[in-house]
């Protein structure tokens, strides 16, 4: 045993565990490799049997077909607009509210905060039917706004930002106060920049949630122009042997995931820090 051995990494982890994890990683990737394989095969060949995946020839025809005629681009844009819009909305509302709950005094502050905390416990399912009716009244279905709005009410962001604003040392804004800065300026110029790590965490969570949202877009975005990627891909899974074929569907799945996967590969480090940031508290 070398002296180095007391480092936490060496005590919590070892080679054998690593190789088990690596094996799990291979299992994890197998379905993806399978889909990539299918996407590179001609559909007619696959109809005779999918063992064809393991032998030549391979082709890019499925991808060419997507570029030519698929609606994936439109769905992708809708998903982007909704996810980005929702992320900014949540960050803005949660930061404003979190700041006030954490660092300002106003009447009913505590009561209001407790009410908001209660909101944490309300799952989407408990309100979705009523929301669907409400959005009918205001003709908000099949609009981007209609897709963005519901999740802005999530109390999680406010809770998280309140925690982070609380963690900032009191001296910082008190020093700013001596310079007679307005409350809003203190928030905007002094404190908000300090919460950037928290913003990143909340932002990524919100974005992923919006990107993966299923039920609300399923009943709200009912026109094909307004489909998000999630709903669009679902709609094309219909009766697949009869229509597009496994190769085309595989290509669609790969193609639709490509943008987020690329973003993920480039920003992986940031995303990982941000996600882990959520656990520090």
């Amino acid at each position: 045993m070398k002296a180095l051995n007391y480092s936490p990494e060496h005590l919590t982890s070892n080679r054998r565990l690593f190789w088990i994890a690596a094996a799990l990683g291979v299992i994890m990737m197998a379905p993806v490799a399978w889909i990539i394989g299918l996407s590179l095969k001609d559909n007619a060949e696959l109809l005779k049997g999918t063992e064809a995946v393991f032998s030549f020839p391979y082709t890019l025809v499925n991808y060419a077909n997507i570029l030519e005629s698929s609606s994936v681009f439109g769905w992708f844009m809708n998903s982007m607009i909704v996810a980005v819009g929702q992320t900014f909305g949540v960050l803005l509302l949660s930061s404003l509210a979190g700041y006030a709950f954490a660092r300002l005094e106003f009447p009913f502050r505590k009561t209001l905060f407790i009410i908001v905390l209660f909101g944490l416990a309300v799952p989407e399912q408990a309100v979705i039917i009523a929301r669907h009716q409400m959005f009918n009244w205001f003709d908000l279905h099949n609009t981007h706004i209609g897709l963005i709005l519901p999740n802005l009410s999530s109390a999680f962001g406010v809770f998280l930002m309140t925690q982070f604003f609380r963690a900032i040392p009191k001296e910082i804004d008190e020093a700013a106060m001596l310079d007679n800065t307005s409350t809003f300026r203190i928030f905007w110029k002094v404190l908000l920049p300090l919460t950037l790590p928290a913003q990143a965490t909340l932002g990524i969570f919100t974005f992923l949630q919006a990107w993966n949202d299923y039920w609300w877009p399923l009943i709200s975005a009912t026109k094909s122009d307004m489909y998000t990627l999630t709903i669009g891909i679902a709609s094309s899974q219909t009766n697949f042997a009869q229509s597009e074929g496994l190769g085309f569907l595989g290509a669609q799945a790969i193609f639709a995931s490509l943008p987020v996967v690329i973003v993920y590969i480039f920003f992986q480090r940031h995303i990982v820090t941000a996600v882990s940031g959520g656990a520090v508290k």
């Binding site: 379905p31 990107w211 993966n212 299923y214 899974q237 569907l249 639709a256 995931s257 987020v260 996967v261």
Partner: peptide, 14 residues
């Protein structure tokens, strides 16, 4: 980071 429909598409074909 994948959306639920892509996950299910993949696993259905598995």
């Amino acid at each position: 980071i994948l959306s639920v429909t892509i996950v299910t598409l993949i696993w259905r074909i598995v």
